[in-house]
């Protein structure tokens, strides 16, 4: 049997088109790839000589204080003689880990809550939205610090969990309002007339139509996670056993090297800004494709 035209309206196609059409989207993708490569080469750099290049315990036996770039340490060393470059590479691993996991968690929770809230309305909606309001109305950084203080041992996973479990309200709101309008659309009514169950309508008819929006909010979620983790690290509330970029800044600051050792301060600071910016750029260029109001007439 002859098959008609192939799918070309899939999500991947849409996302690709959205990102690739904008120069800014391409720049965003390029930066993400750059940091991805950095995360991937991190283990190899450490393996050159773990005693020297391990970001936490590797100490150059010849160096006892922070020193500028040399051949063996292209970005210099910190106050204990640890290699800044290998810390930076490890840091990009952590940034991806935190960013992607938190982004995924927050968007999954937010989308699920938004779909349920918007579709079922009534008491379910009121309850879920009041919870959302409560989380939204508390300033997020103090809240996070409070929650983190409860934990005695703040591993990176605790931070990921806390960020993921508190990062969903805005997504939930947006998805809810989208669901509210989608559920009244004729194609949803048509499904209802055919006898489709509530869950079928949510999963087959509504969810795929909010998915592009979900992706958009995920890029924003990733940006949020990277910046917040860095912020917490700088304030000293992140996992001290991991050389995240925020932690690097914190070490640099607390040992009084802030503007004296630019080779130490600039790489993590710049990395935080660039990676956060890159996800933001991807989201920005996606939005033009997803939000029809932004498209040219």
């Amino acid at each position: 049997m002859r098959i008609g035209t192939k799918r070309k309206f899939g999500l991947a196609h849409l996302l690709f088109k959205g990102i690739s059409q904008e120069a800014l989207g391409k720049i965003g993708i390029a930066i993400i790839i750059l940091f991805g490569v950095m995360a991937l080469v991190s283990p190899f750099v450490i393996n050159i000589d773990p005693d020297v290049y391990d970001p936490l315990i590797g100490v150059d036996p010849l160096i006892f204080s922070s020193q500028g770039p040399t051949l063996t340490h292209p970005l210099g060393t910190d106050h204990l003689g640890r290699d800044v470059l290998s810390q930076l590479l490890k840091g990009s691993q952590i940034a991806f880990l935190v960013g992607i996991t938190v982004g995924l968690m927050a968007t999954l929770i937010g989308t699920a809550i938004g779909l349920i809230s918007g579709y079922f309305r009534g008491a379910t909606d009121s309850l879920l939205m009041r919870i959302t309001d409560i989380i939204l109305s508390i300033p997020s950084l103090p809240l996070l610090i409070m929650i983190l203080c409860v934990f005695e041992h703040r591993g990176i996973w605790v931070i990921v969990m806390v960020l993921g479990l508190t990062g969903w309200p805005i997504t939930a709101r947006v998805i809810r309002s989208q669901t509210l309008s989608l559920r009244e659309r004729p194609f949803v009514q048509s499904a209802r007339v055919s006898g489709a169950s509530d869950w079928r309508i949510i999963l087959i008819h509504i969810a795929p139509n909010v998915l592009p929006l979900t992706f958009l909010y995920m890029t924003i979620g990733v940006t949020y996670a990277i910046l917040t983790e860095a912020g917490l690290g700088f304030l000293g509330f992140s996992d001290p056993t991991i050389s995240s970029w925020g932690m690097m800044l914190q070490w640099c600051f607390s040992t009084g090297h802030t503007f004296k050792a630019l080779y130490w301060m600039i790489p993590p600071g710049l990395s935080i800004s660039l990676l956060a910016l890159s996800f933001y750029l991807v989201g920005y260029s996606l939005e033009r494709e997803i939000n029809p109001r932004l498209r040219e007439p």
Partner: peptide, 23 residues
């Protein structure tokens, strides 16, 4: 109810809205 749904169908006004754009 499912038997009832089998016997009754509906055609909507706006063909741009009555088909799910992602199916």
């Amino acid at each position: 109810e499912i038997h009832f749904r089998r016997k009754v169908q509906m055609i909507f006004q706006d063909p741009y809205e009555s088909l799910n754009p992602r199916l």
